[in-house]
């Protein structure tokens, strides 16, 4: 994009680079917010369809504008700051949540060249940024100075860090196979990985269990059903969002759904070939379709899976959640790090 600004519009290199970068950032952030609005609608529709209901169908054709109507309503509402709350931190918490949710998208590749920050350690960056997500929740729970948000914040913090451990080990297995932690290199390493035909790590016997665990862990990491104990409405009202209103309430939702989309994107990138077409055959002009369309299709598919799970699986109990994280996923992912690296030493590096 820098070339375009430099050659077509005749800018100097520095200025062209700067304009291109800002344009790239806005091209990620603004469509992402639009996507979040639409994906909330999709979530509600899928959920309704599985429960044999209609879902939102009043605002706009097929109810497509429902999220925008909700957004406008929330925007015009009063921001209530409880008198007992810690005012500064109370307002900073939604800002942190949303900023962190946006920031992780900086390294996601949308095509062979279309990546904002092509850093060597992209996967580590994603892990680091998603580990910051805890703070928005904990700070909001503490600053509210109210029982339910505080309980919810403690639960959320313990849940997120528990599943981050196994996510770390799962990522190691992927890095071992790709030999790099750059996200584009990981995608390219998947060309024809499955039987020389499928562009996906998930069809590898050693990585398939890792993918299943990653899918479940990403549900737990984003506190989606069946792991939505942080906002278990039968126990904790609305969890850490209880005291929030207006747009600061909506920011938690936007951030949460942006994180869900990020996890769907990571599932696609790490295990299903990201912007690559699913099959490594060029019968139809398969590779001519722009990469981001494949990536979006995969993200949408994984989001559908997330909604499907939400509509069908009952909520876990907290002890069951902890047992799954520490006694099942952690030992299993550790064992697979040993198995995967051992297999690679024997076959590739030995």
């Amino acid at each position: 994009m820098t070339d375009f600004f430099q050659n077509t519009l005749g800018m100097s290199y520095e200025f062209a680079w700067f304009t291109a970068t800002i344009a790239g950032i806005l091209l990620i952030a603004l469509p992402l917010m639009l996507a979040v609005a639409m994906i909330i609608y999709v979530d509600r529709k899928v959920w309704a369809a599985i429960a044999l209901r209609r879902g939102p169908n009043v605002v706009g054709p097929f109810g497509l504008l429902q999220s925008f109507a909700d957004g406008l309503k929330v925007f015009l509402q009063e921001t209530i700051i409880p008198s007992a709350a810690n005012k500064g931190l109370f307002l900073i918490a939604p800002i942190v949540t949303f900023t962190v949710a946006l920031l992780a998208w900086a390294v996601i590749p949308f095509g062979p060249e279309a990546v904002l920050a092509d850093i060597n350690i992209g996967l580590l960056y994603v892990l680091a940024i998603s580990s910051l997500g805890v703070y928005g929740v904990v700070v909001s729970g503490w600053a509210s100075n109210s029982k339910y948000p505080f309980f919810s914040a403690m639960r959320a913090a313990a849940q997120m860090i528990s599943y981050e451990v196994s996510i770390g080990f799962i990522l190691i297995c992927v890095i071992l196979y790709a030999g790099s932690s750059n996200l584009n290199t990981i995608i390219v390493a998947q060309i024809g990985h499955g039987f020389g035909l499928v562009n996906a790590f998930a069809f590898n016997l050693l990585l398939f269990p890792m993918w299943v665990m990653f899918l479940i862990s990403s549900l737990a990491e984003t506190a989606r059903a069946p792991f939505d104990l942080t906002e278990a409405e039968s126990e904790l009202v609305a969890g850490y969002q209880t005291e929030y209103s207006s747009m600061s309430f909506a920011l938690f939702w936007l951030g949460e759904y942006a994180n869900v989309l990020l996890m769907a994107a990571l599932n696609a990138i790490l295990f299903f070939g990201g912007w690559l077409p699913p099959l490594n055959i060029d019968l139809i002009p398969w590779f001519d379709i722009p990469g981001f369309i494949w990536l979006f299709a995969k993200i949408f598919f994984f989001f559908f899976v997330f909604s499907w799970v939400k509509a069908t699986v009952p909520r876990f109990r907290y002890d069951q959640l902890m047992r799954l994280g520490w006694k099942v996923f952690l030992p299993l992912s550790l064992a697979f790090v040993v198995l995967t690296s051992g297999w690679l030493m024997l076959t590739r590096y030995g």
């Binding site: 800002i22 920031l103 920050a117 600061s248 920011l251």
Partner: peptide, 18 residues
């Protein structure tokens, strides 16, 4: 550098929303 710029823009955007 894009990450730093992104951080500023994201912070500004979410502060605006609040």
């Amino acid at each position: 550098l894009p990450i730093l710029l992104f951080l500023f823009i994201a912070l500004g955007l979410s502060a605006l929303f609040v």
